[in-house]
Nucleic acid binder design. Structure first.
Lengths: 352, 352
DNA sequence: TTGCATTCCGTTAGCGCACACGGCAAATAT
DNA sequence: ATATTTGCCGTGTGCGCTAACGGAATGCAA
């Protein structure tokens, strides 16, 4: 016996119209009847039938999402897929999703797109605040417009964001270091932290991951590892390979390389070409190319963060807030998955 | 512009009643109009509005689930939680879930409960076929009744089950061996495979996991590991501890222990009490006690299989089949999660 | 007293679908 | 010829809710 507005109306000696008005703060209701109805709602424990609600409701919701262009950034195809999957699911509740892209190495494109989105008056906004300063402007505007916004991938502190979905970057670097250390069985080992950079693109995650990595080793008392940090420009592969040449011909021969983002496949291709073996290679994310090198045994570990899920859940957070009007957890860290050749099989497919 | 039955009716010059009849194979429709309607449904790409459907529909569905009693088996609390979570979600679609329990070490309780469930005529059935022979009987009855059934946790081959949700046990043992091997840096290492047994309870998973574990080491050419298999009775802790005493006082001092199920915390408590250090301990599942020993550093690795998700998805498979009438993937292996002290934080909470 | 806001509230038409009911014509029986 | 069955199909109601519309009661000014 589910309680409906009809039951409330009967109990309160009013019509369903009045009940509806107090439920939605619409129209005018006498204070006394309003309180009467509210108390009965509370007493009977009324919860709306969402199916009937969205069937009858004519109000449409629009959610905008702004992420780096997946066409030129393989990683972002995954949050993109998650967002699209969620979009399909909430379409039946009159939710429309508009996805826009910006150029990861061009702050102006980010600014321009946010302006466009905000002037289209969406009901919710999901974005990756990779450019700190510009993002602060966006955040201020959202706060003024009382537009709920969700951070994805990158986290900015002290904001009124509805939620954040992403990884604890420092901790993932810390874990990578543990895995690297586990693989060490030599007296003295040179470890290289490789940061594949795109000039003019943000490096926020990279430095956090590096920090976590170095922190781990600094905590080890019986530590025989010597860390080297290496920034490489990946705008052309040649430059990257040259840097790697330098390392491998130096007298600090690498025992392991920690590549701080998903470009680890570039390093792996260098390994393959130069027949480098017995060097531990750890990187990030289940890009197709990375998966292949993991299966070949060239990459030993991939750290993954369920990016599809991040996209999916970002959308759902706004749905929960706007439609269900339920509270949303603000800080949502993705699991830090450890992927090896032996368990990759069960992580390949994205499904919710 | 979503296509509804009204649109189809108009296009086919019939009433919505007729459209409804061909959609549900109900009532009598002339063959010619039936084909006409069907072709238009196909042409316009009609998909029913599930919200309106379940709002209007009066048919109730009952799903029964039968699992080992969570009260006496900590592991099964997790699939149980997943099943309950799914039950809440599909309640609005007129689905009711009835959960029954059996005694893991008493085959008769399993038989009795299945009889009860089958005579209650549910629309779908989820169960853990841990007792092979009795399960075959159940399966035969389900097939006769044309009752769709889903296996959870344990898989039986060559059945017409709608789906299976569980882990690839052998592969998880294989992965555990890889992790053990990774931790080995000694010339010759004695490794113990511990199988914590409950007399008269099934041991299916245990042997598969052991098999995977030994397979890995047999494949290693430069293998310095010597494996020992150890069955221990855990009906009383004293017996277990005695067995462990024997190992640790032998002249094959363990380098590592692989405990093939979630009882690894029992072994960990022995380690703690006897101040055993530098012995690699690998086990299964995120039971609260296991988590604590992992955080203390006594357990190094926990292999996890997202049991809540298995429960959740089992229910959803039946929902998909019964309500959406969509095809369901038959073989669904859970990921084999590697949990360490450094990433446990992000696996603790179950959320879909 | 009449006129006209204002405040409050009931009524009603859908939303897309399921399903019972009943109707009309052709086929068959009496 | 009329009565009855049968095949086929349209209509109407309601699921629980939203939201527009309009009506009754009250207050206040002219």
């Amino acid at each position: 016996m589910k309680i409906g507005i009809k039951d409330i109306a009967k109990q309160a000696n009013v019509s369903i119209g009045t009940v509806d008005r107090v439920l939605h703060n619409r129209g005018e209701v006498a204070k006394s009847t309003r309180e009467q109805v509210l108390s009965i709602i509370d007493e009977l424990g009324y919860t709306p039938n969402l199916l009937a609600k969205s069937l009858a409701s004519k109000t449409k919701y629009t959610i905008s999402a702004l992420i780096p262009d997946p066409a030129s950034n393989a990683y972002w195809q995954k949050p993109f897929a998650g967002i699209k999957a969620a979009a399909v699911e909430i379409k039946k509740f009159n939710f429309e999703l508009q996805i826009a892209y910006f150029d990861y190495s061009n702050e102006n494109s980010f600014i321009k797109k946010t302006d466009e989105i905000l002037s289209s008056n969406p009901n919710g906004f999901i974005f990756a605040p990779v450019f700190y300063k510009s993002s602060l402007d966006v955040i201020e505007k959202c706060d003024q417009l009382e537009l709920p916004y969700v951070f994805i991938d990158v986290f900015i502190e002290n904001c009124k964001n509805l939620a954040y979905f992403g990884q604890n970057s420092a901790q993932s670097g810390y874990l990578a270091a543990r895995l690297m250390n586990l693989s060490i069985n030599q007296a003295v080992s040179h470890i290289y932290i490789v940061k594949p950079l795109n000039p003019s693109a943000p490096v926020y995650h990279l430095s956090l991951r590096e920090k976590g990595f170095t922190t781990y080793f600094s905590e080890q008392t019986s530590n025989q590892a010597i860390l080297h940090s290496l920034d490489v420009d990946i705008s052309s592969p040649a430059v990257l390979f040259e840097s790697l040449d330098t390392i491998f011909s130096s007298n600090h021969k690498p025992f392991g390389l920690f590549v701080a983002n998903s470009r680890v496949h570039l390093v792996a291709s260098y390994f393959e070409e130069n027949k480098i073996k017995n060097v531990v290679l750890i990187g990030y994310d289940l890009l197709q190319e990375n998966v292949e090198y993991l299966e070949k045994g060239i990459i030993q570990f991939l750290i993954c963060q369920k990016p599809e899920e991040q996209g999916y859940k970002s959308v759902f957070a706004l749905f929960t807030h706007l439609f269900l009007k339920d509270p949303v957890k603000k800080l949502n860290f993705s699991p830090i998955d450890i992927i090896m050749k032996e368990n990759i099989e069960y992580y390949k497919n994205f499904k919710i």
